[in-house]
Design a protein around this nucleic acid. Structure first.
Lengths: 233, 233
DNA sequence: GTCATCATGTAAGCCGTTACATGATTGC
DNA sequence: GCAATCATGTAACGGCTTACATGATGAC
């Protein structure tokens, strides 16, 4: 799961480990405070497997370290200017960028089966956060899988709730859990609806049909429609 | 956390590992499918530390294996009758019961600090499921700690939501998360309110005051008011 | 010159999982 | 007898955490 998050961030822009962590915390919200003891080994692993490549920030790469944009960006800009003035063989900051292999892995992870475990919410949230990189059909499938999952949960919750002899607190817990699940399902229904309308619109829009009967085709429709403002090397 | 769940179940009734798992699944809902690879080692650990004691089901103990009550109970009853007829030195089914030490540990875990991590919901749910074993003041404290936690989360979520340039899906995710948190807080407010009223009622009720200014007293008020229908040995 | 922050890593450990191995009981 | 379920355990591994260790950079 962490791999997916890392690749997702690098998909849009190259950056170094420390900033990956910051983004995970400030933008995604998931992985609230991923620890370096997790993050750096994950990056090394991804590098060894060829999914990402690294450029030392003082290295021969001509890329001028274009970065964040926000306040973090300003600071990085200052630093870059300074280090440019000082120059020399500095080697802090390893800048990671995603490779072709990495992009393939990313798509594979993104479309792959969700783990049914306890953190299914996190897993789904993460996927949804990167859903813009999915083909419309795969995106819809993701939403519908999640809906089915929640429906199943709702069923077992209702059984538990109908069960006799629960004390006040447990009962309240189960009832609240049921309500939350219903709320989630309603939300998903809205998302699914929006997706369907978007697809219908694009189908009447003169564009090539995005409605593939074969769901195993990840490249139909508008996949990869992330605006890429990065003048990537 | 698993220790807490186990002790909580054993607090009310002695039972064997397999049934602990069943109850965790069917009644609590948390730890949906805890694996034996987790459960049995945990039981061994608790036994070694003296928090639980074990009686082999075919052993010298005179306890006639009174069990569940529901359908599981009927089956167990059949089996008990059968094994009573066959007798002999059977030694499957290790029946665990909680010790004095275990009860102390249970209360300590129940009142102890919640982990702030990703599964805070599970942690809180588990505690709430056993909240009837807490002193009213400790119970209220649990609810209010949780409320504070959610309020903090809501604040950071709102910051994230107000942030610009999130794509449609991420934005929807953040907004939904915000709503869910608000829903949770409203629920907690109802629970807290109910607690306060209960405490006020018991205070005017002639009973000894449950409103201790010292929150470190776990035995004031109606703690341990679980009906104990079990003719425990 | 020192403190905070940025930045990268390693080691140990916790808590859980899956997969494997074993055996009793009961229904058919 | 054979399969399903009940029942207990071990081994290997996964993913993440905390704590530790190091060093560059920049602010004051």
């Amino acid at each position: 799961m962490l791999d997916l998050a890392i690749l997702g961030l690098l998909f849009e822009q190259e950056m170094h480990g420390y900033e990956i962590r910051r983004r995970l915390r400030d933008e995604l919200g998931l992985f609230a405070n991923i620890s370096f003891g997790s993050l750096y080994p994950a990056l090394s692993r991804l590098e060894r497997s060829g999914a990402v490549a690294v450029t030392e920030s003082g290295g021969t790469s001509s890329a001028p370290l274009l970065s964040t944009g926000s306040l973090g960006g300003e600071r990085a800009g200052l630093r870059a200017r300074r280090s440019g003035a000082t120059l020399g063989t500095k080697r802090s900051r390893k800048v990671y960028r995603i490779t072709g292999q990495g992009r393939a892995l990313f798509e594979q992870l993104l479309e792959g089966e969700e783990p049914a475990g306890a953190d299914d919410a996190r897993s789904f949230g993460l996927r949804l956060a990167f859903a813009r990189h999915l083909a419309p059909s795969a995106r819809l499938a993701l939403l519908e899988r999640r809906r089915a999952q929640l429906t199943r949960r709702l069923a077992t919750d209702l059984v538990r709730a109908s069960g006799d002899r629960l004390d006040v607190y447990t009962r309240s817990l189960v009832e609240h859990s049921t309500e939350s699940t219903e709320h989630d399902i309603a939300w998903l229904d809205r998302l699914i609806d929006a997706e369907r309308q978007k697809q219908a619109a694009s189908r009447t829009d003169g564009a090539r049909s995005a409605d593939s009967t074969d769901p195993s085709d990840p490249h139909s429709g508008d996949a990869m429609t992330s605006s890429s403002p990065t003048g990537a090397s």
